[in-house]
Simulated scan of single mutants.
Amino acid sequence: MRNISDIIEQHIKKILSGAGSGTAEIKRSELADMFNCVPSQINYVISTRFTIEKGYVVESKRGGGGFIRITKVGLELNQMLHHAILDLMGSAVTAKEAEGLIQRLHDEKVLTTREARVMLSVVCTDILALSPAIRDQIRANYVSAMLVALLKG
């Protein structure tokens, strides 16, 4: 059985897919009422499942007329993609951030399932038994090198 976070995520994705512009404005309190949960549950879903690594830009306005605007950002396969990814990652990237980015590239059909699996196997925390700071720098270098190789292909 799916948990409430999965259900909320799917509902928001359905709203986004129905929006021709790829942008949806939602009210935290309305969603919380709809799913009989606290507004912080909505915040949790948005902050963990609608990240830039996964292809979403989130804007929030608090207060009585407040809203959350979520925009799905598309990818284009070119040099700008590689530079944008490198800028996003910086010189270090956590396993969770790398996994989110790889999943997004797979979802956008930039990576095949096989390429994504290989990349995921290289960036997992278990593979790099080093201190977190060094591990995150090495992981960023690995992701960058793999993307350069694949995008040249």
Rank of each mutant, 00 (worst) to 15 (best):
E59S: 14
V118P: 04
K61L: 09
L128Q: 15
I134K: 14
A129R: 14
H83L: 06
R135M: 13
N78L: 06
A84W: 06
I138R: 07
E108Q: 03
L130P: 11
L75P: 02
H106L: 15
T113G: 14
H83R: 14
S131K: 03
V58N: 00
L105H: 03
E99H: 12
L77T: 12
R117E: 13
I52W: 09
D126Q: 13
A84T: 14
Q79A: 03
E76A: 11
G100F: 07
N78T: 08
K96W: 07
H82I: 15
M89R: 01
V122Y: 08
K54S: 12
L101A: 07
V118A: 03
L111A: 03
L86M: 11
R135I: 05
Q137G: 01
I68W: 05
T125E: 14
P132L: 08
G66S: 10
A95L: 04
V110S: 02
F50G: 14
P132W: 05
T48F: 10
M119W: 10
L120I: 02
G63A: 00
A133H: 04
E53G: 15
A129P: 07
A92H: 08
E115F: 06
M80W: 08
S60I: 15
V118I: 09
Q103W: 13
H82M: 14
G90I: 10
L101H: 03
A116D: 01
A95Q: 05
I134D: 10
I127N: 04
L88P: 06
I134G: 02
L101N: 06
L105C: 05
L111V: 00
L77S: 12
R62H: 11
M89I: 08
E97S: 10
A98S: 15
T51Q: 10
E59W: 05
L101F: 01
T112W: 04
R117D: 15
F67G: 00
G90K: 01
L88Q: 12
T94W: 02
I68L: 13
V122E: 07
G55I: 00
L111N: 01
V73F: 10
H106D: 13
K61H: 07
A116G: 00
I127E: 04
G100Q: 09
E59T: 12
M80E: 13
E115A: 06
A95S: 14
G55Q: 10
R135A: 15
M89C: 11
M89W: 00
E115R: 12
H82R: 12
A92R: 11
E108H: 05
S60E: 13
D126W: 06
V110I: 15
A95W: 01
L105T: 04
T71L: 02
V73W: 01
E115G: 08
T48C: 10
V118F: 13
E53L: 12
E108L: 00
M80F: 11
I85A: 09
S121P: 04
A116T: 00
